[in-house]
């Protein structure tokens, strides 16, 4: 198991699907959903399990929908 593992929680109802987080993610573990939210936007979902919790996605998110968690396995 990877030493540092991360996970993101995305507030999908507030996401506008601008894809900035997907481009900012260095481990390429985010993607757009196949469904839409109540406002009609495709939203971001975590699709890979190689997230390191670097928070790059949350930093560039204009709508502050991403919460980032990181755990260091000892």
């Amino acid at each position: 198991m990877a030493k540092v593992v991360g996970e993101v929680v995305i507030d999908t109802e507030r996401c506008k699907g601008c894809e900035l987080c997907i481009a900012a993610c260095p481990s390429k573990c985010l993607s757009l959903s196949n469904s839409i939210n109540v406002h009609g936007f495709q939203y971001t979902v975590q699709s890979g399990d190689n997230c390191t919790g670097c928070a790059s996605c949350a930093l560039v998110c204009p709508d502050a929908v991403i919460t980032v968690y990181r755990k260091v396995n000892k």
């Binding site: 991360g6 204009p62 709508d63 919460t67």
Partner: peptide
């Protein structure tokens, strides 16, 4: 992984929960 002690980043409490009227990807939100 998702538990309070592992929290790295969350929306600041001083930013309201209202959905911003800005276009998707706008720098204003950041």
């Amino acid at each position: 992984i998702v538990c309070p002690e592992n929290l790295v980043y969350k929306k600041p409490s001083t930013l309201k929960d209202a959905i911003m009227h800005y276009c998707p990807g706008c720098g204003h939100g950041v």
